[in-house]
Every structure is written in structure tokens, then in C-alpha cells.
């Protein structure tokens, strides 16, 4: 349609000004109007569709969290990491620079760690991600307030406010955050990413906002038959996570910092 309009416009330029064709003028007007409608309508439509389930503000009546039972976390399994990469478009990252350098520059939201107790030699496996602290150091240090905590306990980065200073990465005791070192391509609509910003696990916040249960890592772990990760509302005493937390001993990583993390670990 646009091509037609352009072509018609160029022919009308050649027509002598004295012979104005009212019909042609009307046609151009309609064409222009339709083009504009075609451009704007999808935005309006999308907006109205997306706004519906998210019309209510997030409240602090819930606090989302995870419980990770390290006894169930299997050696050599990376299902949670792969699922997170797929869910958030991290598998679309294109390596830049040498392989060894890229290992330290690519964005990682969740990773598997194998550790050994120095005294007893006991080996533990666990996935580590943003711990969604109640008192997050990353939020304290962010100069612009881009690093923030939602009312429902999710700690995340506002990608419009982030200036890429990386102070939050300096402050995070869990090394949970990644800086986007390279230009991004082919990102997912639900998870916009941008070069020069910081990002980290947001407990699949797009799923929360659409009222879905669970997170990508939890689903993947369950699918593998391990069920090592439980997701839920820490404030609801009847939720699966709260019940499990009452049953088994659990602790927070770097408990000494008293950050009251939303992610808890059993068997560490």
C-alpha cells in the first residue's frame, strides 16, 4: 500500500498544478490513512491485550522464593541451566572474542556449582542464581534505582534506568549478575535484553505477571525427575515451599550477611 501511495504521489508531482484530480487526491488521502492505521493499530491492540492480566499492581501479600534440596540435585545434570537459557533467550547469545574470554563475559543467570567441605570432604551440588534478598546490596548501591525489589520480593533490573555502571555486580555477594558485553540479536519478546545493561535471574517474572505457576528451572528439574527445586510463596503457610521449609533443615547462603534471601538451600 505504501508503495502504491509513493508511486501515485510521484505521478501527481508530474501532473500540472492547474489540473487537480479530486478523485486521485481522495485516493491518496485514504491510502495514507490506511497506512497510518496499519502502523499504529498493532501497537494499540498488543497493548490492550497485554495490559489485561497485568492490570493489578504487584502486592507484598506474596513473597516468591525457591527451596533447593541439594541432596536431589544430580551430578552432571544441567537441565535447570539449559531451561533458564531457553526461557530467557540466553541461548541466543553469540560468542564474541576468544572462547576462554567469552566464558567470563557471557551472561549467566543460573549456574551449577560443585563444592567440597574443606574439613569433611563432603561434596555438594547446587544451582546458584540471584538469591532475591529482602535487603539486597545491589539495590542499596544502585545510583539510579534501576536495581530494585518488587513488592512480591523479586529483585530485578529496570533496563530503562540501568546506566551500566556495574556497581551492583561489585556489591552482590552471590555473583548473580551479568553485564551484557556484546550487541544483542534475536531476543525474546518477553525478555528484552540490551548491550551495556546488567541483568540477572528474575524468577521468570514474565510468568509471574501472567499468573503462571513455577519457573523454567523448576519445571525442567521436575521433568528430569529430580524435583530438587520448589517454587512458591514464602508468605503462604500452606504453600508447598513453606510446608517443605518447615519439614527439612535449610539455610541461606552467606547467612552471616543477614540478607534474608528468598532462595533457601537444604543440605549445604
Amino acid at each position: 500500500m505504501n508503495e502504491n501511495a509513493t508511486r501515485i504521489a510521484s505521478t501527481s508531482d508530474e501532473t500540472p498544478a492547474s489540473t487537480v484530480d479530486a478523485g486521485r487526491r481522495g485516493f491518496i488521502g485514504t491510502a495514507a490513512g490506511l497506512s497510518a492505521a496499519a502502523l499504529v493499530a498493532p501497537g494499540v491492540f498488543l497493548h490492550s491485550v497485554a495490559a489485561a492480566p497485568r492490570s493489578e499492581p504487584v502486592t507484598d501479600s506474596v513473597r516468591w522464593g525457591l527451596l533447593i534440596d541439594t541432596a536431589k540435585c544430580a551430578d552432571g545434570c544441567s537441565a535447570c541451566v539449559d531451561a533458564c537459557d531457553r526461557e530467557n533467550g540466553l541461548d541466543l547469545q553469540e560468542p564474541h572474542g576468544s572462547e576462554s574470554k567469552w566464558e567470563h563475559q557471557k551472561a549467566v543467570w543460573i549456574r551449577k556449582i560443585k563444592l567440597q567441605d574443606n574439613q569433611t570432604g563432603r561434596i555438594t551440588q547446587l544451582p546458584l542464581m540471584c538469591q532475591h534478598c529482602e535487603h539486597p546490596p545491589c539495590v542499596d548501591v544502585c545510583p539510579t534505582g534501576a536495581s530494585f525489589k518488587r513488592a512480591d520480593g523479586i529483585v530485578m533490573v529496570d533496563r530503562h534506568l540501568c546506566i551500566g555502571c556495574r556497581y551492583c555486580m561489585m556489591a552482590c555477594p552471590y555473583k548473580a549478575r551479568s553485564f551484557i558485553h556484546q550487541p544483542t540479536t534475536g531476543q525474546l519478546t518477553a525478555v528484552p535484553r540490551g548491550k551495556g545493561c546488567v541483568e540477572s535471574c528474575n524468577l521468570c517474572v514474565h510468568r509471574r505477571d501472567h499468573g503462571e505457576e513455577s519457573t523454567a528451572c523448576v519445571d525442567a528439574c521436575a521433568q528430569e525427575g529430580h524435583g530438587a527445586i520448589v517454587f512458591g510463596d514464602l508468605k503462604d503457610p500452606d504453600s508447598a515451599i513453606s510446608q517443605r521449609l518447615r519439614e527439612i533443615p535449610s539455610r541461606q547462603i552467606r547467612e552471616d550477611l543477614v540478607l534474608n534471601t528468598g532462595v533457601r538451600y537444604a543440605g549445604v
Binding site: S78, K112, K114, L115, Q116, N118, K175
Partner: peptide, 15 residues
């Protein structure tokens, strides 16, 4: 010191 008193044997994020 993510895990004081422990040694990290493997990690997917250079810990």
C-alpha cells in the same frame, strides 16, 4: 567467599 569453609570444584560461572 560464596561458601566459606568449602572449595568450589566445578562451576558454570567461574566462581
Amino acid at each position: 567467599a560464596l561458601f566459606p569453609g568449602h572449595t568450589i570444584l566445578e562451576s558454570g560461572f567461574a566462581d
